[in-house]
Design a protein around this nucleic acid. Structure first.
Length: 276
DNA sequence: TTGGCGTCCTGGAGGC
DNA sequence: TGCCTCCAGGACGCCA
């Protein structure tokens, strides 16, 4: 499940490989990928474009070209981007390949997505920031992500804290794994009403989320099933989990049992003692 | 306005 | 062995 650390890892790997390269040919094989735009229209708009930069906002990858529009890629559950050197021919048998970009250096950028939740969206330069700002809150590693801004985003909310943390308008890029990990670092229970945190707890939540995200980026993401980096390598974060997926094991901080429950429709792991 | 739930989507695990 | 059911979860739409 690509969250901020996984998307950032992909961005860092692909940026030097894509910057300055031209999209020679674009094939899109999945009608869902570009909805509501037809795949042919998106492929046509991308063909011939030269990449100026590759950025990230939340879980979106943003491909900026020398011309309009920009390409927003969201990997959702199982989307993945791999770069392959020039092939020597022969058919690609991967049934989950949803799109393919041939670059002007002969390499291929392959988009693979088993569950087909991922999206490719074209946005003009002028519409980019309104589009993203409508959907996303602050970046957790941004300086502007302060306890005061977090307090404002959570004020009056009675929903479970974890549900609020998963809300991309509260903080961008957090998914199920880093929500659980961040709440563990913050020593906060996932079922706490989101608007009930005092100043110290808000500061702890900010620190906890940043800690979880920083560790995720340092370890190049978590590979549970589908995620790999653009070279096909696995992330290491799954070896560092404090709570996610560890039900029945002991908390690494207080030795109490880790429990699993369901919050906001998501599997949720937490320490029964030190998260309050 | 807020929050809960269903939907999309497919592979894998587990039960019978 | 084969079939069926459930689970995983990001974003969005719908409804109360």
């Amino acid at each position: 499940m690509p969250e901020l650390p996984e998307v950032e890892t992909i961005r860092r790997r692909l940026e030097p490989l894509l910057t300055g390269r031209r999209f020679e040919q674009v094939e899109i094989n999945d009608l869902r990928l570009t909805r509501p735009e037809p795949p042919e229209a998106v492929a046509h708009a991308l063909a011939g474009q030269r990449v100026r930069s590759l950025d990230r906002r939340g879980k979106y990858l943003i491909v900026t070209f020398e011309g309009d529009p920009r390409l927003l890629v969201h990997l959702r559950m199982t989307g993945n981007l791999r770069r392959h050197p020039a092939r020597q021919g022969g058919p690609d048998e991967d049934p989950y390949r949803r799109a393919l970009v041939r670059l002007d250096d002969g390499a291929e950028l392959v988009y693979r997505d088993v569950r087909r939740f991922g999206t490719w969206c074209l946005v003009s330069e002028g519409d980019l920031h309104p589009y993203l700002d409508e959907r996303l809150g602050l970046e957790p590693l941004d300086r502007a992500f302060t306890p005061a801004r977090l307090a404002a985003a959570l004020a009056g909310r009675r929903t479970a804290l974890k549900a609020a943390v998963l809300d991309q308008k509260v903080v961008a890029g957090i998914g199920n794994i880093y929500a659980d990990e961040g709440l563990w670092w913050a020593r906060l229970h996932p079922q706490r009403p989101a608007g009930s945190l005092d100043q110290d707890e808000l500061a702890a939540l900010r620190r906890g989320l940043r800690e979880a995200i920083r560790r995720g980026i340092e370890r190049q993401g978590a590979t549970l099933r589908d995620y790999t980096d653009p070279d096909g390598g696995a992330g290491q974060m799954q070896d560092e989990f404090r709570v996610y997926g560890r039900d029945g094991e002991r908390c690494l901080r207080c030795r109490s049992p880790i429990e699993k429950s369901r919050v906001a429709g998501r599997g949720t792991w937490f320490c029964t003692r030190c998260q309050t």
